[in-house]
Amino acid sequence: MKHFIFASILFFTGNFLHAQDDLENLFADEETTEYASATFKASRIILGQSVEQPYTGNLIFDIQHQFGAINQGYKEFFGLDQASTRLGFAYGVTPWLMVGIGRTALEKTVDGSLKIRFIRQSKGEVNFPFTINYYGNIGVNGLDYSLIPIKYYFTHRLTFLNQLLIARKINSSISLQLMPTHIHRNLVERVIDENDIFALGAGGRFKITKRTSVNLEYFYVLSAQNAADFQNSLSFSFDIETGGHIFQLYITNATGMLEQQYITSSTGKWLEGDIHFGFNISRTFVLKKPKDFKE
């Protein structure tokens, strides 16, 4: 009898203690995949693209401004008298596909773009350390043909960009990205200019608070002739996210807002103060509601 009491006490206290754990254990075998989200706040790090793209059914309206060189002094109000803009739209067709269109004041360029996400950084059941996207665009120069008397074709106006975006969200405040870049220009100004330019970009996001961050971005041009004649672009920005809008205030030595422009043809030198203020405002609109929320 003593044994029985002992055994049953053992059993029931054991049972009682483990009841809650038993329920938890029912789900223990389940391993899920957790994807990194919001590696960057905006679809741009500063001038260049980030791995972020609009969510499905969302439209991003980009307003980009870049001013003249700061070292022009008060007469040009430190460059603010000269503003150059790009207005653009980017739409999330699927979770992995973005299509975009834009117009840049510099060289009156119209651009069409595609961003495709190949794989997302994840941990758990599926483990992968990086998010990888392709970004490509075609720019159409809208200036009048130059006075140099050759026969011009429409294709002479075209420039192309191919870029891989490889990013890792290290933790909730730090994200880093590499951007191997290829640019092709159908027509170049001088005989010595290269039609194909290769560059390697690197960028990062460092959060200060949950809603603000400091970003930096650098493009190192690998093509020798271009590198000798022009400057690599280096930019710093301060980002503020307000909910519906993202503001990016930046300083850069680059000119232009298309990769074909600022990677290949920037002449500004940081040390001489030949740098520019600029800002991006990006606003997201929901055009298509997700399935669960359709009335």
Binding site: Q20, L23, E24, T32, Y35, Y55, G243, G244, P290, F293
Partner: peptide, 26 residues
């Protein structure tokens, strides 16, 4: 994830925060 033990009355609920869906993805 939900579990209820009818004998002891214990209940257990668990949900992944990231799997909440909103009308606006942002």
């Amino acid at each position: 994830n939900a579990a209820i033990d009818a004998n002891s009355g214990e209940v257990y609920f668990k949900v992944l925060i990231k799997s909440f869906l909103f009308e606006k993805a942002l």
